[in-house]
Amino acid sequence: MVGGLQRLDGLRPIHVVQGEQYVTDDPEAVLTTILGSCVSACMRDPLAGVGGMNHFLLPGARPGETDSVRHGVHAMELLVNALLGRGARRERLEVKLFGGARLIKGLTDVGALNAGFAEEFVRREGLQHVGGSLRGDSGRRIQYWPGSGRARQVFLPKQAEELIAIETRTPKPAPAQTGALELF
């Protein structure tokens, strides 16, 4: 164990940063991420032997803001579709949700909005919410084994600015119409 996390000797760690998702059927893979107010959904189909993780933050999240929610739905859809594309079945998907911490008091609780969105998405889509850890006021380091569905987390010291910097280190541009074809 290292700092409460399992050593990854012999395994293939894959770090998932904000705005990305990763899906694998490699039984030796372990997906890792660091979360502040962002949320990661860890999903797997135990029968198909495929699983994955995303890492997202609702941009400009405000309660009920439709355009913000669209980005969250898109992040979840990318993960779900990638799993379905690798042989998973929607009705067998098991989901663990992590993150959504409130790092800075006094501002809008972006973490709670992210967490609430993720829970609502899983509920509305009828997916099996089998565990995880949401909200609180500490960042988290997550390890997820898609092969077994096992997940471990370690709470990180409350260094809000540092966590925010880590989460936003490689921000993905908003996937709008960039690169779109001009056919119409």
Binding site: T66, D67, R70, H71, V73, H74, E77, P175, A176, Q177, G179, A180, L181, L183, F184
Partner: peptide
């Protein structure tokens, strides 16, 4: 999904919308 859009055009799609999209 550029390739998909091109195939959809061949099949007579009228337009396409890239997710996530605004109203």
């Amino acid at each position: 999904d550029k390739e998909l859009v091109q195939r959809a055009v061949q099949f007579g799609v009228n337009n396409y919308l890239v997710k996530p999209f605004t109203v």
